[in-house]
Nucleic acid binder design. Structure first.
Length: 437
RNA sequence: GCGGUCAUAGCUCAGUUGGUUAGAGCACCAGAUUGUGGAUCUGGGGGUCGCGGGUUCGAGUCCCGUUGGCCGCCCCA
């Protein structure tokens, strides 16, 4: 007999794994709902061009892509952003503003596995469309923070680094760099934290080496880690664009402070995110210890909806991945042991008692209680043991003695006491027990 | 794509310079136990030792290849 393995990087969810996954999804969904975001979903398989249009041909190496039987070049979705841009773009004029949407979905990337990264993973995605000002960022950064805090994480566990590609572009423009060179510099900055001076190699090869003064001014901007440092720096330069941008920054940070979220947010212009489609504020969430890869990332992408064939529509969004997030929860002891025991366990004597038990079991289930019973006849002792192990709160005992008296014995497995009720009052009694908590 | 490391039961792991029928704990099932709690005791099922080839009288053990896991690099939407 041949043996089959799970494809590399793919995951299987046994019941206890799925319980953990659902725990994440449940809290994310609840949190998004409290922020007034509406949930959507979309196809797993998309036209390959949807991703080519956004990110270029080289992206194909990291896609699960193939040609379908109709000769179409298709790919398993590696992210949600192009898809949601299409959905919103197609009906933009009919959608009530603000457009606040979220999804929880699985994505696929043909990559090498590492800690916190596989070839399939889930992401919580949240986006706001149609809002050009920092009000959208306020809402999304707050949602991001709350999506983590909902699990018991605090500002001691994670933080959000906030940066701004516009600020960089305006600053580099003020330094006399054209847009193409500015993009080259941003590419270098994205890698600077990891590579140091090596990061500028690619830029130098393309545009020639930076003068020492220019490089110093760029590096000092990169090291800005506070609003006051930013203000001091920008007033020196006296650019109108930069002054207007600074007002947006103040608006954003002030609102987050009003929400009590300042402890979670740090200004860090070293974050620019490699992706070229971001157009304004960008942000990433990390664990405080710096042991894990990014927990979440996002930013503004005002041009993408139009680029993908829709109307011009400003947008901001972020995504939280499930793998790194689960690692963090486990590290901090915040992943609960999820035991989903039944409410009621039925202990059944013999074949005759079984018929009576079945009637009540089904009535209880129809009323919404979770009820289990031994599928086959087993000794009473084993049934009590199984009932206790199952985590049930109550045992209903259907023995010959009880049936002869027309009663059911109900045992409170927590209190370890028991009492008898007439058969026709079983449902009412159970309902009363659980409504008391 | 590159490098390191590992692979024996569902899980965690033993397995001696290569030597008879590959073991333990946990988990699972059953019995002790014909009406009351996670215990105990006894027993049981479960393995192509990742896969393929080679060396050898003989390979879980040595050699080569391969697949897969983990960790890191590249990348990270």
């Amino acid at each position: 007999m041949p043996t089959f393995q799970t494809l590399p990087g793919f995951r299987e969810f046994y019941p206890e794994d799925l319980a953990r996954r659902n725990f994440l999804f449940r809290l994310w969904r609840q949190t998004a709902n409290t922020f007034g975001f509406a949930e959507y979903d979309a196809p797993v398989l998309e036209p390959l061009d949807l991703y080519r249009a956004k990110s270029g041909d080289e992206i194909e190496a990291q896609l699960f892509s193939f040609t379908d039987k109709g000769g179409r070049a298709v790919a398993l979705r590696p992210e949600m952003t192009p898809t949601v841009c299409r959905l919103v773009g197609a009906k933009a004029s009919a959608l009530k503003r603000p457009i606040k949407w979220f999804s929880i979905a699985e994505f696929y990337r043909y990559e090498r596995m590492q800690k916190g990264r596989g070839r399939c993973f889930f992401q919580f995605n949240a986006d706001i469309f149609g809002e050009p000002g920092p009000e959208a960022e306020i809402e999304l950064v707050a949602l991001l923070v709350q999506c983590l805090c909902a699990f018991g994480l605090t500002h001691e566990d994670f933080f959000v680094r906030l940066s701004d590609r516009n600020l960089w572009f305006y600053y580099l423009e003020a330094l006399g760099l054209d847009p193409e060179r500015a993009r080259g510099i941003l590419g270098a900055i994205d890698k600077y934290e990891k590579l140091g001076d090596e990061a500028f190699k690619g830029y130098s090869e393309r545009f020639g080496a930076l003068t020492p003064e220019l490089k110093a001014r760029i590096l000092s901007f990169l090291e800005i880690k506070s609003m006051t440092a930013l203000e001091t720096r920008l007033t020196d330069i006296g650019s109108e664009k930069l002054a207007a941008r600074l007002a947006d920054w103040k608006h954003l940070l002030d609102a987050l402070e009003a929400m009590g979220l300042s402890r979670f947010v740090e200004v860090d212009l070293g974050v620019v995110r490699g992706l070229a489609y971001y157009t304004g504020f960008v942000f990433e969430a990390f664990d405080r210890k710096g042991e894990l890869r990014a927990l979440a990332g996002g930013g503004r992408y005002d041009d993408l909806v139009e680029k993908l064939g829709g109307p011009a529509l400003p947008a901001v969004g972020f995504a939280i991945g499930d793998m790194t997030f689960a690692l963090l929860l486990e590290q901090r002891g915040l992943m609960p042991a999820i035991a989903q025991g039944p409410d009621v366990y039925a202990v059944i004597g013999g074949a005759a008692e079984r018929r009576a038990a079945f009637a009540d079991i089904h009535a209880l289930r129809a009323a919404g209680f979770r009820v289990e019973y031994p599928l086959k006849e087993v000794a009473f002792g084993k049934q009590f043991k199984a009932g206790a192990e199952s985590g049930a709160k109550l045992a209903l005992i259907y023995g010959g003695d009880e049936l002869a008296k027309g009663v059911v014995k109900i045992r409170d497995l927590g209190q370890r006491n028991e009492f008898e009720v007439p058969r026709d009052q079983v449902l009412a009694t159970v309902r009363d027990f659980f409504s008391r908590g």
